[in-house]
Amino acid sequence: MRTVAVGVKLSLVDQTKIVTAASELARNTLVYGGGGEVEVTRVHNDRRAGIRIVFADQGPGIVDLDLALTDGYTTGGGLGLGLSGARRLVDEFDIDTEPGKGTTITIVKWCR
């Protein structure tokens, strides 16, 4: 993941942000989703390169998304900063969840 981040020429701070966000989300996938899949890809739009990471699990899903994205809210005894904090660390944050079906989170960080 770090290699891809370096490959698309993300600045050191941006590398740190995306890897930290990934660490938060991977922990969520593990703790709440009961494990799942992570996919890292390089992406391009017409002017910039970036890195996209997708976390997918078949866990219980998130019932109240707004609440889950609130700073300090947690059901797992953490600090409640995983989702909300990760969202602040990336440029694009997309979450697709359904109770009982699992959760897929896609994050993108673009080169500045």
Binding site: T16, E24, D71, L81, S84, R88
Partner: peptide, 14 residues
């Protein structure tokens, strides 16, 4: 603590 780590922690809200 490295600068990039500090900036990230601030953004994370920690």
């Amino acid at each position: 603590m490295r600068p990039a780590v500090a900036i990230t922690l601030v953004e994370l809200g920690l």
